[in-house]
Design a protein around this nucleic acid. Structure first.
Length: 355
DNA sequence: CACACGTGGAT
DNA sequence: TATCCAAGTGT
């Protein structure tokens, strides 16, 4: 089938099955670049269902690029808490400031300039150019990779085959309605050409699909084997002062959970669970630490974490040793006011449940 | 190119 | 329970 015909049938399918999403313009309307950009950043490696409430909250608090640029970084991190990949939130804020200061608060309308902005890579630059400005740009996300690998029965594994998939995708991207086309292929990948049990009977490219014809659609795209996730273990320290506040800390700005608030803990290492030795060496202060039963489990992208919990409480008669602890003291009923990632919310829930 | 970087839902 | 995977980017 000709590329033009493929694009036409895809757009026809999209006109019939277009989903209503908070960041999406109504048919024939112009999309707001700020919303498109914000949604694209949030949707990186994150599902539509998860993003929904966060998108609404961000838009309510910061309706425009310049509003977001004027916000405190900590407020942005707090609003982002739970979404994951926290570098996105830092880059989001940095990007808003750059657009406000260097572009008059208006997003550039082309791929090349968008690509220069923090947090905007090849995919997002193409997506914003296409969706917000209706520029011809080839978006290549996980959906498009899957659709292309099946349409052309590409059997070489990702990620090395990615340039080939991009070239194939580029041959179909139309000059007219490139924004709708980009969303159409991604929607197709999200609802029809899905990873398992693809619904080929509903696909506008059913007759053109080489993988379907060969009976191998569900096996594509092929992917290189992933490394096994190691288990790291550590000990978290739940410390309460005489005022009933708990000790928290802010993590370093870069790396895992960068800039987020945490319950202090020992190092997380790939060896046996730390015992009282870790308490002696890495606890924030000397105290009458006692081990709480059970542990907190959490899985990150590249490792499993098992966290034991040691707790101590300073009462009015226990001296002021607690004052030597480094960090911030937060009343337990005001924890929600801080940028606490999910793993640390699990720690908090476990500690409060053990009281 | 390979790896670091979160989380929750589906199977 | 274990594994996969989702509208990727930065280093």
């Amino acid at each position: 089938m000709e590329p033009a015909e493929l694009a036409r049938s895809m757009l026809g399918w999209y006109d019939k099955h277009r989903r209503v999403l908070p960041w999406r313009a109504l048919p024939g309307k112009t999309a707001d670049p700020y919303r498109v950009w914000l949604s694209e950043i949030m949707l990186q490696q994150t599902t539509v269902a998860t993003v929904g409430p966060y998108f609404e909250e961000f838009l309510r608090r910061w309706p425009t690029t310049t509003d977001l640029a004027a916000a405190d970084l900590d407020a942005v991190l707090h609003a982002w808490a739970g979404l994951g990949y926290y570098a996105r939130a830092r880059n989001l804020h940095k990007c808003a400031k750059t657009v406000a200061e260097q572009h008059g608060g208006v997003f550039p309308d082309n791929e090349e300039q968008l690509r220069q902005l923090p947090g905007i890579g090849a995919y997002t630059a193409a997506a914003v150019a296409a969706i917000a400005f209706d520029r011809r740009a080839t978006v290549l996300d996980g959906n498009v990779e899957r659709v292309m690998s099946r349409l052309f029965a590409v059997e070489e594994p990702l990620p090395s085959v990615k340039p080939k998939l991009r070239a194939l995708a580029d041959t179909i991207t139309p000059e007219r309605r490139p924004g709708d086309y980009a969303q159409a292929v991604m929607d197709l990948g999200a609802t029809v050409c899905i990873p398992r049990r693809p619904r080929c009977g509903q696909c506008p490219w059913h007759d053109a699909c080489a993988a379907r014809a060969a009976g191998i659609a569900e096996t594509l795209p092929r992917k290189a084997a992933k490394a096994e996730k190691p288990i790291r273990r550590g000990m978290a320290f739940w410390l309460i002062n005489p005022e009933g506040s708990v000790l928290l800390r802010r993590r370093p700005e870069s790396g895992l959970l960068g800039g987020m608030i945490e319950v202090p803990s020992s190092d997380w290492l790939e060896r046996a669970a730390p015992g009282l030795g870790a308490v002696q060496e890495q606890a924030p202060v000397e105290a009458a630490w006692r081990m709480l039963p059970g542990q907190v489990r959490h899985t990150f992208t590249h490792f499993h974490l098992e966290l034991g919990l040691a707790a101590a409480r300073f009462g009015p008669k226990d001296g002021d040793g607690w004052k030597r602890a480094e960090g911030i003291w937060v009343p337990v009923d005001r924890l929600s006011e801080h940028a606490i990632p999910t793993v640390m919310r699990k720690v908090v829930r476990h500690a409060l449940g053990s009281v």
